[in-house]
């Protein structure tokens, strides 16, 4: 028996909007730790890892570890039917081939049940070791989204370089080239508007902008984004989900052919 009651139901709506374009089908894993997902895109270039910790739910019952295969587009369709202020409960009976999403309006005057068919998904779970990153950039998520969108109108790839000067996002295309430099800026009043750069070693890596733009669909989940770079590893683009966990996107870099 599984029963997860999330007062901030719109969090789940936002999570689905953030991942459904990257991944079509995925297994949601439920354990005493929380509700999680790890899935790669179909070309095995990008990976999304989601964790919503059990403590973040108002009620969390998960009698045994369960993996539920879901079509994310269908799940998003169902969650779109929940009101933004609705409390969302995810329910599944042991061995059942369906999952139920229950939506309750805040004053309990409307209760809706949406039952969705589960699917068997063969997915490869990757082991992601803890790593030391050469540079960690923390910046407003809206700023990062803006840069990715702007650069993708010029080119297909972005070079992200971190030096003592700051973090530089560069692209080039048929019509010309573009560079955006963000410097460390901690003097602003609000911490969510600041940019911080923790650099152990300068690093410069090239990534496909198409994926970066897809990751920025998670912008509504967090006011800040953390970009962790190392020359030997995929970049990690992380959006913290307040009091609940995170959504992390991993993207393998491009190399000179």
């Amino acid at each position: 028996m599984l029963e997860l009651r999330l007062v901030q139901g719109n969090l789940l709506k936002k999570v689905l909007e953030a991942v459904k374009d990257l991944v079509t089908d995925a297994n949601f894993d439920c354990s005493s730790t929380g509700f999680s997902l790890q899935a790669m895109d179909s070309s095995h270039v990008a990976l999304v890892a989601l964790l919503l910790r059990s403590e973040g739910f108002e009620h969390y019952r998960c009698d045994r570890n369960v993996s539920m295969g879901m079509n994310l587009n269908n799940m998003a369709k169902m969650l779109k039917c929940a009101g933004n202020d609705d409390i969302v409960t995810i329910k599944a009976d042991d061995g059942s081939d369906t999952v139920t999403f229950m939506f309750e309006s805040p004053n309990q005057d409307k209760i809706a049940d949406f039952e969705m068919k589960l699917m068997d998904i063969d997915s490869e779970h990757l082991g992601i070791p803890e790593a030391e990153y050469h540079a960690i950039v923390r910046m407003p998520s809206s700023e990062f989204a803006r840069i990715c969108k702007d650069l993708s109108s010029i080119g297909d790839t972005v070079v992200i370089s971190v030096t003592k000067e700051g973090v530089k996002f560069s692209t080039r295309g048929d019509i010309g080239n573009a560079n955006v430099v963000c410097r460390q800026n901690t003097t602003v009043d609000k911490p969510e508007e600041s940019t911080t750069i923790e650099m152990h070693e300068p690093v410069s890596l090239t990534f496909a902008l198409r994926y970066m733009n897809s990751f920025t669909k998670a912008t509504p989940l967090s006011s800040t984004v953390t970009i962790s770079l190392s020359s030997e590893l995929p970049v990690v683009v992380e959006y913290k989900i307040a009091e609940m966990g995170y959504i992390r996107f991993y993207l393998a870099p491009k190399i000179e052919d």
């Binding site: 070309s43 270039v45 779970h125 990757l126 393998a252």
Partner: peptide, 14 residues
């Protein structure tokens, strides 16, 4: 030109 690497070059299947 650039070649896109795959995640398997960095991470192993559990």
């Amino acid at each position: 030109s650039h070649k896109q690497q795959k995640l398997f070059a960095f991470f192993t299947i559990k």
